[in-house]
Design a protein around this nucleic acid. Structure first.
Length: 812
RNA sequence: GGGGCAGUGGCGGAAUGGCAGACGCAACGGACUUAAAAUCCGUCGGUAGUAGUACCGUGUGGGUUCGACUCCCACCUGCCCUACCA
């Protein structure tokens, strides 16, 4: 009887006692760093965690059997808001809540039978971990990669904290964590200079990452080429604008500033002041959702001020309007109503002049008075002073040259990517290691004082405000520079900061001289295969790339990228085809499944039931297929067949062929992470083996070989039953240290082939021929076929196509 | 508005441009059983036919090719990302 409840705990204990999955530096072997995104300790391991981790584990095991020294670590992304919510709602300290969950989840992870090297576990909420998170912050701070600025930032009123731009999602601009629509607040916050790396982050060369992730990141960074041009106001202030159409500069008939633009106050005339201020007030109170909706009618107010168009010295009015956003470009635009739809609408509404300066070749001369929409196409420059007559394909470059020569602007590249806002007004995170001194300003906490530990004696108010702000003593300290009274920064870091470098902490979680042991780094990095959900495409995966590159420039890390190959798994939906959630009651619990079927069955089913990168709805009866498979394997290998015949040579040769053909395809599928066809290939081979067994193959040399190869192919998928059967069939412990079997190419060759015969591309017959048949013989045999002749209707063949080993196609 | 991904039986899915539907689930028929479960055997895209077999069939319409689920173009549907981005 196959009893997973007995064999699984037994082998898990044995493997742990023997340190079977310990990965240590070994210069003799090629290394392989397999990494799967670490879980947040929310309380229970979800079937989605299993779906993400099991195939990654199987792939890591396969690599190990191939002879690689494989590192496959696990840890916990342990800081974050749910812990604090538990504190507020249930009165449990976040630390207690988190570490209790970690204990439970570690137990659940162990029930998977994965090859995690638990000695390398890292928990981001441990002071020994966040000490280095803080150290990284200080390196960034000292090298001008971390800075403070006041800006209108996104704030989640439910989570009571600011968010990075990436963490605001969807049309309604909601919080990534809780779904509440965010609001804008003007606050002083800490940022990392991710924009310094915008250009480099667009370079995916040498990386084996899914196209989709590259596209998502490329779109997110959104590089646009144009020019920056400086306009002067009448009293000499500069207003810089960014434009992608410098060739339309002569058509700029007004300027628009964002309502929050710092120059608004200066350019506004006393007469316009009341109108401007009331518009600013209105813009401030309007939600971003309304404000950024493109179909809203454009509104704005004249400031009374004027600017000079630097190419033609024309005096043009300065307006403010909320369709110009302070957060993109310079927060100011030159408006070219003839060639930009937004500016056109605005000009028509407020009766501002429209000047045509581009004439596309395929259109009739444009008359501004009759236009009902802007003409955004490129074309010959007209009414453009010295550049009039410049053809469309040269217009951009000539215009840029012209403004550069006159010193009023230059070519410029703009990105939508923003600097990463890392301040969080929360308790349960790594404190930002800064001391604010009234004399010295923001001063980094000295290295010897790290970590800045979170105080444990804290209280939560129902408001959700950070207890660090309210703590009676923690906040008060002295300035490391002048020794005077000073205050600690009370904001903590975005948890994405912790997860930007966890792959480095795994290398040496106990090392206390540096974030990682350089020897370990040199051996293991970079990560060879990284797996996780695609939802991190524009968050974690951008942050961690930025982090690596920034650290590289500081001499901390090496190489272009931290993760060479990336693969994304899909999502397991509930049986009702909806996202699993407690409120829907469609949650599948891995603990229940393991109790009912055993871990190997769950692993096999998760790898089999869907294309990994797509995911699929769960199917409770589908798992029966995996149950039957393992039961059949058990009996096929252990029970001798009753009244056995003796197998003939054909049976054994066919068996060997199928075994080695399967080995070929399974090896390829493991390499390419094609997990569903690994399992289906093994099922198919088992069916063949069962047939061979009843034909008397059991116990023969060919059978022994088949069995040995089968169990080794199965070992990465179902490690427990494979180990048990390996032992029971007389092999030495452990199957997981065995080499991956080698394909006997000669054995895979068919000695007979079935040629399909087509007439005009339609299947008309199948003929069986010796594998070494010549082209002439094959064609002759095909033409000889009765059915083929029937469909040729007596016509002579015009052409006969022969694909060796596959088909003959007769064209008549 | 811009960009991306996907569309194959009742379901999940398979198929280096070459036999569409491997493998599995469900369903149906049968064997074993007093019965059920388990197990085993068989059927399982549609239409016509007792059958051999024929015709149709991979979202729709075109194209390339001796040959298209696969490559190209257009469209439809669904999902995801993004968006007054200057």
């Amino acid at each position: 009887m196959y009893k997973p409840e007995e064999i699984e705990p037994k082998w898990q204990k044995q493997w742990a006692d023997d340190g079977l999955y310990h990965a240590d530096i070994n210069q003799e072997k090629p290394k392989f760093y397999a990494l799967t995104m670490l879980p947040y300790p929310s309380g229970d391991l979800h079937i989605g965690h299993w779906y993400a981790m099991t195939p990654s584990d199987a792939r890591a095991r396969f690599k190990r059997m191939q002879g690689y020294n494989v590192l496959f670590p696990m840890g916990f992304d342990a800081f974050g808001l749910p812990a604090e919510n538990a504190a507020i709602q249930r009165g449990i300290h976040p630390k207690q809540w988190t570490y209790r969950n970690i204990d439970n989840m570690r137990r659940q992870l162990k029930s998977m039978g994965a090859m995690f090297d638990w000695r390398r576990e890292a928990i981001s909420a441990d002071p020994s971990y966040y000490r280095w998170t803080q150290w990284f912050f200080i390196q960034f701070f000292k090298n001008n990669l971390a800075y403070q600025k006041q800006a209108p930032v996104d704030f989640c009123p439910n989570c009571n904290t600011t968010l990075a731009r990436e963490q605001v999602q969807g049309e309604d601009r909601h919080c990534e964590r809780c779904g509440t629509p965010v609001i804008k607040k003007n606050l002083t916050q800490w940022f990392f200079r991710t924009t310094n790396y915008a250009e480099e982050l667009l370079d995916f060369s040498g990386m084996d990452w899914p196209e989709q992730v590259q596209t998502l990141q490329t779109n997110w960074i959104n590089r646009s080429e144009g020019a920056s041009v400086v306009f002067k106001t009448e009293n000499g202030d500069s207003i810089e604008v960014f434009t992608t159409r410098p060739d339309t500069l002569w058509g700029a008939t007004f300027m628009v500033l964002a309502p929050e633009h710092p120059l608004v106050e200066k350019v506004t005339t006393p007469a316009q002041k009341p109108a401007v201020e009331s518009y600013q007030e209105q813009a401030k109170h309007m939600g971003d959702i309304q404000r950024e909706s493109a179909d809203r009618e454009k509104t704005g107010v004249f400031t009374g001020g004027y600017a000079i168009n630097p190419v033609n010295d024309k005096k043009i009015p300065i307006w403010i309007a909320d369709y110009v956003l302070m957060s993109y470009g310079t927060g100011a635009i030159m408006a070219v109503p003839a060639h930009d739809q937004r500016d056109f609408e605005f000009a028509r509404k407020y009766d501002l002049p429209i000047e045509v300066v581009i004439q596309p070749a395929d259109q009739n001369p444009i008359n501004p008075a009759e236009m009902d929409a802007a003409v955004p196409a490129s074309g010959e420059m007209v009414n453009s002073g010295p550049l009039t007559g410049t053809p469309g394909d040269q217009a951009f470059d000539r215009a840029v040259e012209y403004i550069a020569e006159r010193g009023v602007g230059d070519k410029s590249i703009n990105y939508r990517l923003r600097d990463w806002l890392i301040s969080r007004q929360r308790y349960w995170g790594a404190p930002i290691p800064i001391i604010h001194c009234p004399k010295c300003g923001a001063v980094a906490v000295p290295n010897e004082d790290l970590p800045v530990e979170l105080p444990e004696d804290v209280e939560w108010l129902p408001t959700g405000e950070s207890p660090l702000k309210l703590h009676p003593t923690w906040r008060m300290t002295t300035c490391p520079q002048c020794g005077g009274e000073a205050e600690r920064e009370t904001d903590t870091m975005d948890t994405f900061m912790c997860s930007s470098w966890y792959h480095l902490r795994y290398l040496s979680p106990d090392y206390d001289q540096y974030p990682f042991d350089p020897k370990e780094y040199d051996y293991w990095m970079p990560v060879d295969t990284y797996t996780g959900g695609i939802e991190h495409a524009t968050m974690h995966l951008i942050y961690t790339r930025f982090f690596h590159k920034a650290c590289r420039d500081l001499g901390i890390t090496k190489g272009k990228e931290p993760m060479l190959q990336l693969r994304n798994q899909g999502m397991v939906l509930g049986e009702d085809n909806e996202k699993m959630s407690k409120s829907r009651g469609n949650v599948i619990s891995p603990d229940d499944l393991v109790a009912e079927y055993g871990a190997d069955t769950v692993r096999a089913y998760l790898m089999f039931f869907a294309r990994w990168e797509l995911g699929a709805p769960w199917n409770s009866s589908g798992i029966e297929g995996s149950v039957r498979w393992l039961r059949k394997v058990w009996y096929a290998f252990l029970e001798p067949v009753k009244n056995a015949k003796s197998a003939n040579k054909d049976v054994l040769r066919d068996l060997r062929r199928k075994v080695h053909q399967t080995l070929q395809s399974v090896t390829r599928d493991f390499e390419n992470l094609g997990f569903n066809t690994i399992v289906s290939g093994l099922m198919e081979l088992l069916n063949e083996m069962t047939t061979a067994k009843s034909a008397g193959a059991f116990g023969t040399d060919a059978w022994q070989e088949a069995q040995s190869i089968y169990l080794r192919m199965m070992a990465p998928v179902c490690p427990h039953i494979a180990e048990e059967l390996w032992q029971k069939t007389g092999h030495d412990y452990s199957i997981h240290t065995q080499p991956w079997p080698e394909v006997d190419v000669a054995a895979t060759k068919e000695d007979e082939i079935t040629l399909i015969v087509q007439v005009n591309g339609k299947l008309r017959d199948r003929i069986t021929l010796p594998a070494n048949v010549s082209e002439e013989q094959a064609k002759a045999a095909a033409l000889d076929s009765e059915n083929v002749q029937h469909f040729m209707e007596g016509k002579p063949p015009k052409k006969v196509i022969y694909v060796p080993g596959r088909l003959v196609n007769i064209v008549v």
